[in-house]
């Protein structure tokens, strides 16, 4: 699957509405930032987007498993 296909798939994503509103906003913002990075062929996403996503997930213990997955997948904890 190409980056273009990934972007098309990403653009179709809709954030669930049964989660806290602040979480909906940061997830939507993160998805938009990811699309922006892909469409503009940027090397990386500004750290604030991921930081804001992590900071908001951190507020909700029920989403800590998701947070652990993000930390693990991003390799941030190993740095």
């Amino acid at each position: 699957m190409s980056v273009h296909d990934d972007l098309k798939r990403f653009k179709k994503y809709k954030v669930r509405t049964d989660i806290p509103e602040d979480l909906q906003i940061v997830i939507q913002t993160f998805v938009e930032a990811t699309i922006m990075v892909g469409e503009n062929n940027l090397d990386s996403m500004p750290g604030e987007y991921l930081a804001n996503l992590m900071m908001t997930l951190d507020k909700y213990p029920e989403y800590h498993d998701t947070l652990v997955d993000i930390i693990s997948d991003s390799g941030l904890a190993e740095k």
Binding site: A51, M54, M55, D58, H64, L67, V68, I71, L76, A77
Partner: peptide, 10 residues
């Protein structure tokens, strides 16, 4: 454990 890792990263 999770929160300390998040704190360190952020």
């Amino acid at each position: 454990k999770v929160r300390l890792v998040v704190y360190d990263i952020l």
